[in-house]
Amino acid sequence: MDISFENVAYTYQPKTPFEHRAIHDLSFQVSSGTFVAIVGHTGSGKSTLIQHLNGLLRPTQGQVTIGDYQLSSDKKLKEMKELRRRVGVVFQYPEHQLFEETVAKDIAFGPANFGVDQAEIKKRTYEVIQAVQIPEDLLERSPFDLSGGQMRRVAIAGVLAMEPEVLVLDEPTAGLDPRGQKDIMDMFYRLHQEKNLTTVLVTHSMEDALHYADHVIILDHGTKYMEGKPAEVFVKKEELNKVQLDLPEVIQFIFKVEEKFGFRLTYRGQELSELAQELKELIRGADNHE
């Protein structure tokens, strides 16, 4: 589904002493099938933004459009339930929301709520546990006996079982060990492609934004600061530092190479092995001229 924000503002507790304007004048477009990363330091409005995607919040000004659904301050969306089925949100530490006696029941909870029949739920359960790589023999176990990484996968399976078309991920790798982080992100990337999803990733990891996203939106003080292709946005060192963001490590390193050796490598999303090759040639090549 296409996503569009037009001059969106959201104010918490308006007209009270606690009034807080979390986002304002926010406009952007994401076309269906895009993997978009939302980046910004703590308090920049990321969480408020994603709560608009499934109607948990309604803009106080402007308009949010998700596919055919429109959210604005003046009218309530009739098809809210339908929107929430089609936009799946994986919140931070989703394993904290597990509650059922068995893994199978936890996965079934969402679709059952949306009126999916038992046979269909069963079929979907087997599909989603494969997608998140949970072995079948865990289905009848308590989710609370599983490891942290497995619990997170079960929670994600519950969201996938609703067969959403938009998948919203809020810091999905927080607290996982390095291999767990890579496995989970690779899994989301695979799902994104296989199921033709529109994926919205909120992350502190510039590395992940660079590696997985087609498009990156940078927020600062509640509004859009920059957007574009990751390889183009993440080389703008001064602009990013101004909003307290760092460059991805590989790009930082490329800048330091330029400072020390006086020649420039270009980041085009190449693998580390390619980068090493270019580095080697530059070091040797530069020498030939002397």
């Binding site: 060990d177 390095p178 291999r179 590989v250 390193f253 580390l272 980068l275 090493a276 580095l279 080697k280």
Partner: peptide, 16 residues
């Protein structure tokens, strides 16, 4: 289940 930092990885590639 662990990993090495970016610098170690790049150093390994260069050594190769």
């Amino acid at each position: 289940g662990l990993d090495t930092p970016f610098v170690s990885k790049l150093a390994d590639q260069l050594t190769n």
